[in-house]
Design a protein around this nucleic acid. Structure first.
Lengths: 233, 233
DNA sequence: TGAAAAAGTTGTTGTACAACATAGTTATAA
DNA sequence: TTATAACTATGTTGTACAACAACTTTTTCA
């Protein structure tokens, strides 16, 4: 669904610090080429194997980046949240997408043709440096995650997943509820385990007083202990 | 060991296509700030937790980039070969190294202060675009590997490791020997398994006629079947 | 509002692989 | 040349986790 009614929304160049390097002309050029889009919950934004065409900037809502593995088992690689840009990596690598992206909830986003991004990037060195920084950070993150996903035991993996979600989305101040509420399936897909084991291990964390499970909502009770479990399993 | 005798060696800017974007002045500036270095087999080049200072360019020899995991188990993330640059990611991400690098054999390399690389990068947009491309490709590779390492069975993981080594280093034309000869330990560290299981599974591949084991050397007999095992396990 | 689908929960069973042990074999160096 | 260490090889045992099943609760939407 592509709309042009973007009244009341911040323009794309104010969504993220990464655009702060842009000149006035570049900002206008970026805005002119930006389209507003909405995605329903669970809608596919891009798909493994497709040619990349657009960079997306999330206005609201959460997105999962994942790969479909063996026997339909999904591995979630990272989450994208408000203000973040995504879907551009494959374009710069010169290939098709190796991952897919779907919305975890109703999403509002801007899309910009990657040819436009490339043009601006080629004329604005500071933006290029910012992209280098962003890609470098992502690469370091994923290098670290590989060891966790392959070597940590199930408790350590789930605790790490929860800690990452706490750091990324935070907890509601009053209630202590984790803001990024995922399905057990998605939590399992992120922590490399089956949904059954995610449920079982969450129940264990609950009985140990690390968290409190209230339906889909998770209340963080003992974050420091959770971080210990993350390290020690 | 830092030397200045670089006679008979290509200058750094001719080692890799990435520097083709450089002007004559930039090339000279790069060369002036480049030091020649040698590493013995098994020597540490950089270490997890250190502040990044230098970009390295490999003149000859192979290097492994790895993380020390649980119980001393190493996960090898990628290999660096002749002509490739490495050790710069952490600098651009603005943090310390999250990985370590050691030489797998005797290595000759150039080192350049990362401040110098940054200067050139900030003045040469084409180089910045080339770095973006390089980082984007690495990120795509590692995203794909995550699913293999977490979901494939042991045969599939080992076959994939061998296929990656074939693609990266090739096989000797005459003999069919795999050029990148790793220890069983390193092969296991790359394919996420114990050395015992790497040995066992190599022996199985041997008895199935996919490869021939001759001491440390591996002869590739049936590459297409090896690629099938890589997909199907 | 009520039926169907999706998500969550819990228990059981089977197996892939780590951990460990032991021994043979090949490099390294004194 | 021999001693010591590092690497390679193979068998045994234990266990962490996937796979599956059956059942309950919540959500969706007609």
């Amino acid at each position: 669904m592509v709309k042009n009614l973007t009244k009341g929304l911040k323009p794309i160049d104010e969504m993220s610090d990464i655009w702060s390097a842009l000149t006035h002309e570049e900002r206008m050029y970026l805005r002119e080429n930006t389209k507003y889009q909405e995605f329903k919950k669970g809608e596919m934004i891009y798909c493994e194997g497709e040619m990349p065409e657009f960079l997306y900037c999330v206005i609201s809502g959460k997105i999962k980046i994942f790969k479909n593995g063996i026997g339909g088992r999904q591995q979630i690689l990272r989450f994208i949240k408000e203000g973040e840009n995504f879907a551009f990596r494959a374009y710069f690598a010169g290939g098709t997408y190796v991952t897919s992206a779907t919305s975890l909830e109703s999403v509002k986003a801007y899309s910009v043709p990657l040819t436009v991004i490339r043009q601006i990037l080629e004329s604005n060195n500071k933006l290029a440096m910012a992209f280098i920084k962003h890609l470098s950070a992502d690469l370091g993150d994923i290098d670290s995650r590989i060891v966790s996903l392959t070597q940590k035991h199930i408790r350590g993996r789930l605790a790490e997943a929860l800690v990452i979600l706490i750091d990324a989305y935070g907890v509601e101040k009053e209630t202590g509820y984790l803001k990024g509420a995922l399905s057990r399936e998605d939590l399992a897909g992120f922590a490399n385990m089956t949904a059954s084991n995610a449920i079982r291990t969450l129940a264990a964390f609950d009985s140990e007083g690390l968290i409190a499970i209230e339906g889909k909502k998770i209340k963080v009770l003992n974050e420091s202990q959770l971080r210990k479990v993350c390290l020690l399993g």
